[in-house]
């Protein structure tokens, strides 16, 4: 092989970069699905678990726009016939009290950094 040292160095760099997911996880504990804090206050959420899992961010975005622009504060649930107030702090975080033990768990795990907290406060504060 010609220019052996240069080519092999290049290939070594290539292999190191391309196998990052493999060597990066050597020795670290197996990944476990984040455990979310169980809610004691209410029996069910404003919508089904599957819907909330997939769409909670869109829902909060819509709530914000509807409240701020149209002064529409009431949310009619499609799973139970209750009416909820469209409010992150007053409705969602009334049950899911602790941001660290609920919101952040999944968000941190997949590097999502929602900008809710640029304006909203964590009602219970940071509980260490």
């Amino acid at each position: 092989m010609y220019h052996k040292s240069k080519i092999l160095t290049g290939l070594a760099v290539f292999i190191i970069f391309m196998t990052y997911p493999f060597w990066n996880n050597i020795g670290s504990a197996a990944y476990v699905r984040p455990e979310l804090e169980k809610v004691k206050k209410a029996k069910e959420c404003v919508e089904s678990v599957e819907f909330m899992r997939a769409e909670h961010m869109s829902m909060l975005n819509e709530w914000r726009d509807e409240v701020v622009r149209d002064a529409s504060h009431e949310y009619h649930s499609t799973v139970n016939n209750s009416v909820y107030q469209k409010s992150l702090t007053k409705t969602c975080m009334d049950c899911h009290e602790n941001k660290d033990k609920f919101c952040d768990k999944c968000h941190d795990s997949v590097a999502v950094d929602p900008y809710c907290w640029d304006c909203h406060v964590d009602p219970k504060g940071v509980q260490k």
Partner: peptide, 22 residues
């Protein structure tokens, strides 16, 4: 939407050789 946490379970399992299909 895909369940992103399940996806991460799969991908992390894949690279740590503890293969799971959530």
């Amino acid at each position: 939407k895909s369940d992103i946490i399940s996806v991460k379970e799969l991908t992390m399992g894949l690279v740590t050789f503890s293969w799971v299909i959530p």
